[in-house]
Design a protein around this nucleic acid. Structure first.
Length: 504
RNA sequence: GGUAGCGUGGCCGAGGGGCUAGGCGGAGGUCUGCAAAACCUCUUACAGCGGUUCGAAUCCGCUCGCUACCUCCA
């Protein structure tokens, strides 16, 4: 049996912890444990969610493609994410939404979890191995708090538990991922209410006592309360991946304070660093600005798919969105614009039609042209190298376009297919297929073809009306009757125009 | 203010001391009944100013501009 691809194409990744590109060496190859901080499910999924999921989907796919056996855990945050994290005050995001919509918090969670999954399915994002939720792991979270308390890195005040950053910082360097220094944070932080409970303004809640009106609450050794936001990821990653695992991912905006808190919690509970490689993807901007609720410039995925948003001049298919995201490297910011999306749409079509063309090629061996044969093999080889170099999807796509040119050249007989060897042709076929479909997860749309359908019907109506004008009623009746069989009922209005309705 | 990072051709975006992606758009051509598609050619840029170097878009310094995090959000 051939050795796994990962030995042939060793993977290197930029580790946020060291800010350097490092050789990827899993703890127990071929096993790889990967954790991604998923969404807080209290609103419709938007472009930012798509980027996170798509970037890590490709990482997941490529790791598996290389021969790793990946356990990919992507959580759903359904409790504990407060509106005002620093002050430890504010309302839980989920229960606030529930209050506003007058439903149970779990209805909010159910609705938006479903919408999130549905959008990702359309984007051809593979489901993770495990998709745990915070509320399903309250016991695990309590156990971790107990362990942190036992080790002395947390303290109890009025039935709430806070992490003791002061004590932690005496032993460990806090802020390694984000480059932040605790003293700077303290001098720069604003004064807020409700800090009196904490020894240090940046201590964060592990467990909060529930006020009487707080809906989402659980029993604990410290009375009724709810877990802090950062804790769930430590609890669930530990449960499913172990105290130290290979890859921890998330958006750049989660570096601080969320991931710093996770690092601190793991040390407090297990005296371990949770993950060997931290991978952070960059954010999506619109007109150079971050997409955010408060700026009101965010576009939901549904709006993108339907085109129903004032910033959109047309609808964009899920595949286009996926391709648009993957055309940039995951660590670069991506700026949204209609122009860029339209360019992506056309580029994707080009690539996918080359893929289709490849399937039609029939190779007959002839006289070998070593130069071309070698060139094609080298391009195939580069697909692996680019992806193994910190998942460079942008460069991979560039190589695929080059291969696409060759494929078109063969098809239109501008290049002679017989001059490459059988092996090279098979290699080309396999590589092109593997990377476009398997690794990048790009596929032609089955999706929304309403516009096309309408156009086709209108076209048939106008042909039929020409036939009627020519008194060619055999043709006009044939069009009407066969359309009816297909579920399109035509109606000739008194005004002379023709309308139609869909009957199924 | 502190921290991290960025400024690449008409647009989007890789790269990151000499080999100088790719896509979209634009121009010309081949093919074609006309188109379209495809293919070929052209469209050669790295914010500014200094410095290091035989050589800088790439390294260093400064200036300007932008973004993110420090508050909700991927």
């Amino acid at each position: 049996m051939d050795p796994a691809l990962y030995t042939k194409y060793p993977l290197s990744v930029v580790n946020s912890l060291t800010r350097q590109k490092e050789l990827f060496e899993p703890i127990n190859p071929p096993l790889v444990g990967m954790y991604l901080c998923g969404p807080t499910v209290y609103g419709d999924p938007h472009l930012g969610h798509a980027r996170s999921a798509v970037n890590f989907d490709v990482i997941f796919r490529y790791l598996a493609f290389l021969g790793y056996k990946v356990r990919y855990v992507r959580n759903v945050t359904d409790v504990g994410h407060l509106e005002d994290e620093v002050a430890g005050a504010g309302e839980d995001k989920v229960s606030k939404k529930a209050r506003l919509e007058k439903v149970e918090p779990m209805e909010i969670v159910q609705l938006y979890t479903y919408r999130y999954r549905d959008a990702l399915r359309q984007l051809n994002v593979l489901p993770p191995s495990i998709e745990p939720s915070a509320t399903g792991h309250i016991i695990e979270q309590i156990e971790i708090i107990q362990s942190i308390l036992k080790h002395g890195y947390a303290y109890e005040v009025n039935d709430s538990i806070y992490f003791d950053l002061g004590k932690y910082a005496q032993e460990q360097e806090y802020g390694q991922i984000s480059g932040k220094v605790l003293e700077d944070l303290q001098s720069g932080s604003r004064q807020t209410e409700g800090l009196d409970e904490k020894r240090n303004p940046h201590d964060f809640a592990l467990w909060k006592k529930a006020s009487p009106e707080h809906i989402m609450r659980w029993n604990s050794p410290w009375g009724e309360g709810f877990p802090g936001w950062h804790l769930e990821c430590t609890a669930m990653s530990t449960k499913y991946l172990g105290e130290t695992f290979d890859i921890h991912g998330g958006g750049l905006d989660l570096q601080f304070p969320h991931h710093e808190a996770e690092v601190a919690q793991s040390y407090g509970a297990f005296h371990n660093h949770p993950a060997n490689y931290w991978i952070h993807h960059n954010l999506i901007t619109i007109d150079g600005q971050k997409m955010s609720k408060s700026k009101g410039n965010f576009i939901t995925l549904e709006q993108l798919f339907t085109g129903d948003h004032s910033l959109l001049v047309q609808a964009y298919s899920p595949a286009t969105i996926r391709f648009f995201i993957l055309q940039a490297h995951y660590r670069s910011p991506v700026d949204f614009s209609n122009e860029a999306l339209q360019a992506a749409e056309k580029g994707l079509t080009r690539l996918l039609s080359a893929q289709e063309t490849l399937g039609k090629l029939d190779h007959q061996p002839g006289t070998l042209d070593e130069k071309l044969d070698k060139e094609i093999n080298q391009l195939c080889e580069r697909c692996y190298r680019e992806m193994s170099d910190d998942f460079n999807t942008a460069k991979l796509i560039a190589v695929l376009f080059d291969l696409g040119s060759k494929i078109n050249g063969f098809y239109h007989q501008q290049l002679n297919l017989t001059v490459i060897s059988v092996e090279t042709f098979q290699h080309l076929k396999q590589t092109f297929q593997d990377f476009i479909s398997g690794v990048l997860g790009l596929q032609a749309e089955a999706g929304d073809d309403t516009q096309q359908k309408e156009g086709l019907i209108e076209l048939l109506i106008s042909i039929r009306n020409q036939a009627r004008a020519n008194k060619d009623f055999a043709t006009s009746d044939q069009i009407r009757d066969q359309l009816k069989e297909l579920g399109v009922q035509l109606k000739d209005e008194k005004s002379g125009s023709t309308t139609y309705s869909l009957t199924n």
